[in-house]
Design a protein around this nucleic acid. Structure first.
Length: 872
DNA sequence: GGCTCCCGGGG
DNA sequence: GTGTACGGGAGCC
């Protein structure tokens, strides 16, 4: 049969379905004069196939000047398909002034905007009654033919005096499609239509759909994961030059595929190692393996920022194609801070993104290197191999390369296991929020909340608010209100610490007090509703008691859904699937409060955020009062958590106390046991302060140290600073010996002064972000880069600049940049000991040692203070 | 004190 | 691309 015939059938069928689904007004306006009998049409429809599948990702293309949705999916029998739907059109909303509705409608319909040689016209205008932030309004739904016409029209209509507001003009077309069609990725979906000839060379079957709709609650199981990792030739250490340095190894890890591809041969019995002749072949084989393994998910660790961009750069340098997608399109690399690499039709997960953004909050690790994350989450680490030596091993010896291949494979394995472990959580979030895995993987808390609200609002007939403009954001940033209640700790070392917290404190408050931008300070409840327990100076606030707000309704639904799940879990025993679902619901619900106070939020409401903390303070203070009454020593409390010292009591006593508190708490509120810590140190925020919040380190039972709020030791700090902080915390928490820690620090300071510290430990690293001549201010690393340039060393944006702050013999008043030297320029003893002591070592441990009465001055002096001996 | 720049992960 | 940003610390100006 001629392919055109299929397309014609689909056209008829989609029209038919449209007619069936639409209201009369619409069909009258749209019914074209077409000649086909109903019987014939019915025949066409019934001859069409129904395809059931799990959507994985969605994109769109322009064909014949109209947008066509491409929905990539996995069928119930496990094949990959692309569902093509050309029936969806972009739109946005216009809210006219009430008296101008008809006028605006007419003006929109007549509007003609020149675009190049063409003219953009509105395709259709519908009138709807909607809710908008607690108000009932009339809004016009304006349809256009092309997504890119929306911003064009938006900018014109925005100027009109008769218009109060325009809305939803920036919802990505493909996402809008999923939302409006209620299509949930990874959930069973069905389409009526027919397979058509693929328009691409990729060979993925294409199914032209007349209709796409959700099918059932069923969701995709056992998504096939393939993890990968590359090793690159880096003779310059951290300095990465993708244009010049090849990829030497590439590992793939899946359930039934374990492979390392490399292009230097050596003798080995390891069958997982595949030898090829060149880097170009390595890339070819990588693509080949991905295609033939046909995973649903390609996973990497920081692959948005490293592996895929690097692969692309290498493919470009070698003049070959890197064709991983389903449609032979290039990988779409987003620049900017949130860079991501999107592969059409193949979900690329960068599991680092999820861990750093979402999971990190609940983790102990303070940084998210693969090694640390894997150890904490999997109890398994990387292979011991010094990556610094890979380049030389590659250059001269072949006997060492096998170890690097195994190292490479291990990284891919860890990435695989991490992805496998996180996938249930990610998938559940996908099913709750309704966006593709690729997007959910990269979203932070506020984005998850916002997209969830955007997707759910139409069920409540709510019109979505706009993103704030820059000046609004600036204004919101200035806003401040009282946060959670803080019980300030007395700095010191404590034993046997129990931590309790209200995990769902804020969500349950938002729900039970009906807190939202649409219900705040309503006219109908003025003087009647209970006032929020705000701080004295604030204007009294209340929330509507008659109408449930959209946000509280949504959050209540999340909470009750989770409670039902928990009950099911209690009844059925452990279920990883239900647990993941419960975690995702909790995570999302907990993000609402932060969202309400987030300056970039569409549903921002400082008053709501403020009211939430006010009620929070009210309840946590109740708990503190009761704990003290029960005889525990309250060490510290912040917002929703309490740290108690057992003070002679047992762990069981504390758990009993918790249970007793819970009995008296209203509704869904619950105090949870967070953990027990044998020791912990609480530190003051600034030298001299009595105590301050969020600065402590706890020793867990496993022996790991959990640090909160100490100045982050960054990669560009010197090795000596990191080493000192780590050692000091260990000496204090494990050996309980602050005096020893001081002796240790003094010894390090003395070593620095005596120039005994090896130069490697005082090297600072900073990356050059842009061309050297574009810098307006000259930081030390810029000064060094200038010198490198002058010395003929090639540098470019992205180069890692290493430098040492050297002692200045003649002028001590110079700027830091004048003392910055290339590591090669300085001799072992040239570093500026004073700088490293004052700006690296001391700041890393100052606050810790302040706790025990040691000041900076004491550390800098070379003798002990006698009165401190009595401190212990 | 405000502005500018860098970091995160990866080899 | 109906886009697109974070938040905090350090040093310069």
């Amino acid at each position: 049969m001629h392919p055109k015939y299929h397309l014609l059938k689909i056209f008829w069928a989609s029209l038919f379905i449209k007619l069936c689904n639409c209201n009369t007004q619409y069909t009258c306006a749209r019914t074209p004069n077409l000649y086909i009998t109903p019987a014939a049409l019915w025949q066409i429809i019934s001859a069409m196939q129904t395809l059931k599948f799990y959507p994985l990702d969605v994109t769109y293309r322009i064909e014949n000047s109209l947008p066509v949705i491409h929905l990539f999916a996995k069928t119930i029998d496990g094949r990959h398909v692309c569902i093509i739907d050309d029936t969806f059109r972009p739109y946005f909303w216009v809210i006219p002034k009430y008296e101008n509705i008809m006028e605006v409608k007419g003006k929109l319909q007549r509007l003609e905007i020149p675009k190049g040689e063409q003219v953009v016209k509105v395709a259709k205008v519908e009138q709807h009654e909607k809710n908008f932030l607690g108000e009932a309004i009339v809004a016009l739904k304006v349809f256009l033919n092309l997504p890119s016409d929306v911003p064009l029209l938006r900018d014109i209509v925005r100027q009109w005096d008769m218009v109060t507001s325009i809305n939803e003009y920036d919802i990505l077309f493909a996402r809008r499609y999923l939302i409006d069609k209620k299509i949930i990725p990874l959930s069973l979906t069905e389409a009526k239509g027919e397979f058509i000839e693929s328009q691409d060379s990729s060979g993925i079957p294409c199914f032209k759909a007349a209709e796409v709709k959700p099918s059932s609650e069923h969701s995709a199981q056992d998504l096939k994961i393939l993890a990968f990792d590359i090793e690159t030739y880096n003779p310059l250490g951290k300095h990465v030059v993708a244009e010049k340095h090849p990829i030497v190894m590439l590992a793939l890890y899946g359930d039934t595929l374990k492979k390392v591809i490399t292009w230097k041969k050596f003798r080995t019995d390891d069958e997982s190692i595949e030898f090829v002749d060149s880097e170009a072949q390595l890339i070819d084989r990588f693509v080949h393996h991905v295609k033939s393994y046909a995973p649903d998910i390609l996973a990497g660790y920081y692959s948005d920022g490293f592996d895929l961009p690097y692969l692309m750069a290498r493919a470009k340098a070698l003049g070959i194609r890197l064709d991983l997608g389903m449609d032979s399109s290039e990988i779409d690399l987003d620049k900017g801070m949130n860079r991501s690499a999107r592969i059409t039709g193949l979900t690329h997960i960068d599991i680092f993104r999820y861990i750093a953004k979402i999971l990190g909050r609940t983790m102990e690790a303070e940084s998210f290197t693969l090694q640390k994350v894997a150890l904490e989450l999997l109890g398994e680490g990387k292979h011991a191999a010094n990556i610094e030596q890979l380049a030389s091993a590659w250059d001269d010896g072949t006997d060492k390369l096998e170890a690097f291949c195994q190292y490479n494979l291990q990284d891919a394995l860890l990435t695989f296991k991490l992805t496998q472990k996180m996938l249930p959580n990610l998938s559940e979030m996908v099913k709750i929020v309704g966006l593709p895995l690729h997007d959910i993987n990269r979203m932070g808390y506020s984005q998850l909340v916002e997209w969830y609200l955007l997707a759910r609002s139409s069920e409540f007939n709510e019109l979505n608010p706009n993103k704030p403009d820059d000046s609004t954001i600036d204004f919101r940033r200035q806003m401040s209100y009282t946060g959670g209640f803080v019980y300030e700790p007395e700095p010191g070392l404590y034993n046997d610490i129990i931590v309790f917290d209200f995990r769902s404190l804020y969500p349950s408050l938002i729900s039970s007090h009906n807190i939202s931008p649409a219900t705040v300070r309503c006219d109908c409840c003025e003087g009647l509703a209970k006032l929020t327990p705000l701080d004295g100076k604030r204007k009294a606030t209340w929330f509507c008691t008659r109408r449930k707000g959209f946000i509280p309704a949504i959050i209540e639904e999340l909470i009750t859904r989770r409670l039902r799940l928990k009950a099911a879990l209690a009844a059925s025993g452990k279920s990883p699937f239900l647990e993941a679902q419960s975690n995702s619901l909790k995570l999302l619900a907990n993000a609402f409060y932060g969202y309400l106070g987030f300056p970039y939020a569409r549903w921002y409401s400082m008053e709501s955020a403020e009211a939430t903390t006010a009620w929070g303070r009210f309840y946590i203070q109740q708990v503190i009062g009761k704990a003290a009454q029960a005889g525990f020593k309250v060490i510290y409390s912040d917002t929703d958590s309490v740290f108690l010292a057992l003070d002679g009591r047992t762990k069981e006593d504390a758990l009993q106390f918790c249970a007793a508190v819970n009995i008296e708490l209203p509704g869904v509120m619950e105090l949870e046991f967070e953990g027990y810590y044998p020791a912990g140190i609480f530190v003051s925020a600034k030298a001299g302060d009595i105590g301050a919040k969020k600065r402590y380190a706890l020793l867990s039972e496993k022996g790991s140290i959990k640090i909160k709020g100490f100045e982050a030791i960054r990669k560009n700090s010197s090795l000596i600073a990191r080493e000192v902080q780590e050692t000091v915390l260990n000496i204090i928490l494990k050996d309980r010996n602050p005096a020893e820690a001081v002796r240790y620090v003094k010894a390090v300071i003395k070593d620095l002064k005596d120039k005994k510290v090896p130069i490697e430990k005082v090297i600072l690293n900073t990356q050059l972000q842009k061309r050297i001549d574009t810098y307006e201010s000259v930081s030390p690393h810029v000064a060094v880069a200038q010198k490198m340039l002058a010395a003929g060393i090639s540098i470019r944006p992205g180069s890692n600049i290493q430098f040492v702050i050297a002692e200045d013999t003649h002028n001590s008043k110079e700027k830091l940049r004048d003392k910055a030297r290339l590591p090669d320029e300085v001799n072992e003893k040239d570093y500026d000991a004073d700088y490293y002591i004052r700006h690296q070592v001391i700041p890393s441990i100052e606050r810790i040692l302040n706790v025990f009465g040691y000041t900076k001055d004491v550390l800098l002096e070379n003798r002990e203070q006698s009165k401190l001996a009595s401190f212990f």
